[in-house]
C-alpha cells in the first residue's frame, strides 16, 4: 500500500494521484548502469549514489540471489530501516570496474561468511555439535544446534552452517573435502 511517508518527504495533503504515481513507481524496475548512476566512496566508509537529481549519501548494496547468482541482480537500496529500492544493477558489466569494486567491498562485509576449508574435528554432544575447523579467514571453533535447521543444503554439495548465534559458515563443495572430513560431517549430510 502506498500510504505513509513518500519518497519526497512528508506530504500532508491527501493526493490520490500522487499516491498512485508512487505505487506505480514501486511496481517499476529501474536498472542502473554507468550512464545513469554515479557511485562514489564516502569518507565514512560507505558508498553514495547520484542518479540525475536524486542524491543518496549512503546506499545499501544487496544481492537478490546471494547463493544462486551473486554476480547479477544487485539491489541498491536506501539505508534506513524502511529501506526502499533505488534501482537494480542487472550485471556488473553495466558499471565501471571501479564501481564494481566499491560495491563489492560493501557486499564483502554484508555477506561475511567464512569458507570452511578443513574440518579438524566435529564432536556432537547433547543436542549440540562442536566444530573445530579452518576457514579462509582463520581457524574457527563454533557450535551448532543439531535439532534446529543449522545446516542448510544450498545444493547437493554446498552447505551453509549457522552457529547458535547465527554466524554463518559455508562449505562450497563438500566433495572437495577429504573422505575423513566428510565422514566427520556425515551426520549433517
Amino acid at each position: 500500500m502506498g500510504y505513509g511517508k513518500g519518497f519526497h518527504g512528508e506530504e500532508k495533503e491527501f493526493d490520490l494521484e500522487e499516491m498512485e504515481k508512487e505505487t506505480e513507481e514501486m511496481l517499476k524496475i529501474r536498472y542502473l548502469n554507468s550512464d545513469n548512476a554515479d557511485f562514489k566512496r564516502t569518507e565514512g566508509g560507505f558508498v553514495s549514489l547520484k542518479i540525475g537529481d536524486e542524491n543518496y549519501e549512503r546506499v545499501h548494496v544487496v544481492r537478490m540471489f546471494p547463493f544462486t547468482d551473486p554476480e547479477h541482480y544487485i539491489s541498491i537500496r536506501t539505508p534506513d530501516e524502511n529501506s526502499k529500492e533505488i534501482g537494480i544493477i542487472k550485471d556488473f558489466k553495466d558499471v565501471s570496474a571501479d564501481t564494481r569494486k566499491m560495491l563489492e567491498e560493501q557486499m564483502n562485509l554484508r555477506y561475511f561468511t567464512p569458507i570452511i576449508t578443513k574440518i579438524i574435528n566435529i564432536k556432537d554432544e547433547y543436542g549440540y555439535a562442536y566444530f573445530d575447523v579452518v576457514t579462509d579467514r582463520g581457524a574457527c571453533r563454533f557450535t551448532i544446534n543439531i535439532g534446529g535447521s543449522a545446516v542448510v543444503h544450498l545444493s547437493d554439495t554446498r552447505i551453509l552452517i549457522s552457529d547458535i548465534d547465527e554466524n554463518r559458515f559455508e562449505i562450497p563443495d563438500i566433495m572437495k573435502l577429504t573422505v575423513g572430513e566428510r565422514k566427520k560431517l556425515d551426520l549433517f549430510l
Binding site: 579467514r137 582463520g138 574457527c140 571453533r141 563454533f142 557450535t143 547458535i164 548465534d165
Partner: peptide
Amino acid sequence: PPDPVEIHSFKGY
C-alpha cells in the same frame, strides 16, 4: 590488525 594464527572461538567454546 587481523591475526592469522588466532583461533576464533564462538559460543560453545
